[in-house]
């Protein structure tokens, strides 16, 4: 695991990050359940009913069941995490999330012996999600992590931004945030978490395995087949924004490189 030293480095790295504005973070989103335009989620996600909300936790856990969002929140310690956010489309932001470590939630459910992966599912509510009328992806949206990735202290469930409840377009009421992976891994508006012993299917990988791997770690040396991942554009720089180099594991190499020791990252992309 990551000890105090690792966390201190993480904290030090945070100090230099200048967060994007609320407006930037909440007006430019990918949430295809509400449409494929970047402004569609801000326009249409207001229709999503997020209260009441419950999350089914099942699979290889001691305490499976439907957990009410409010009950989860009463058990968890929410803290601020200022993370880089790197989209697979080669743009990036810095977001001041509020949330709790996924490990705490999984420990509450009690992960059983033999568990190796964690699968996640986004809500699928056709009446409130105009985008799911189209077969852009196979709905519901699905994502997954290896158990050690899920238990890593950098991996959080975000419930807020700038100390305000997370807006629907950003994945209300709770979403995953895995800062060293491309943004699409950080699945939004989660209704189900399944602990399992097999690698779960994930939406973008199902749709196009050549372009989107299960791991999808930010990696400037492994290009997307249709564009380079070597650099990125920071949101907020205006019409003449310069591209900046993309960092290995999105700048979290010290903290997470150990998870992938001995793996060929161009094969497990």
């Amino acid at each position: 695991g990551v000890g105090l030293a690792g966390m201190a480095q993480g904290a030090a790295a945070q100090e230099t990050l200048e967060p994007n504005t609320w407006e930037e973070i909440t007006s430019y989103n990918n949430f295809y359940e509400f449409g494929t335009g970047k402004d569609d989620p801000a326009k249409y996600a207001g229709a999503l009913t997020t209260e009441p909300w419950s999350v089914k936790i099942d699979g290889l856990v001691d305490n499976p069941g439907d957990y009410d969002f409010k009950d989860i929140m009463s058990e968890m310690t929410v803290e601020e995490r200022i993370y880089r956010f790197r989209c697979v489309e080669a743009w990036s932001m810095v977001i001041p999330w509020n949330g709790f470590e996924l490990a705490d939630l999984l420990n509450m459910a009690g992960v059983q012996e033999g568990a190796k992966f964690v699968a996640f599912e986004t809500a699928l509510i056709p009446d409130e999600m105009p985008g799911v009328r189209y077969p852009i992806l196979e709905w519901p949206y699905r994502e997954g992590l290896r158990l050690d990735e899920a238990m890593h202290p950098l991996t959080i469930m975000a419930t807020g931004i700038y100390d305000r409840p997370i807006p629907n377009q950003n994945g209300a009421p709770l979403r995953l945030v895995v800062p060293w992976k491309y943004g699409f891994k950080s699945i939004k508006s989660i209704v189900r978490i399944t602990v399992t012993d097999v690698e779960p299917p994930t939406s973008w990988n199902m749709s196009n395995p050549r372009e989107y791997g299960f791991y999808s770690n930010v990696n400037p040396n492994v290009n997307h087949p249709r564009w380079s991942q070597a650099s990125e554009r920071e949101i907020g720089g205006g019409l003449f924004a310069k591209r900046i180099p993309t960092l290995m594991f999105n700048g979290y190499e010290k903290e997470v490189a150990g998870l992938y020791e001995g793996m060929d990252l161009s094969q497990y992309y």
């Binding site: 407006e23 930037e24 430019y28 402004d39 554009r233 019409l239």
Partner: peptide, 13 residues
């Protein structure tokens, strides 16, 4: 519009 923010936060795209 791109210069003055009318095209959103990623005006290049």
């Amino acid at each position: 519009q791109g210069l003055t923010g009318g095209l959103g936060v990623n005006p290049i795209e």
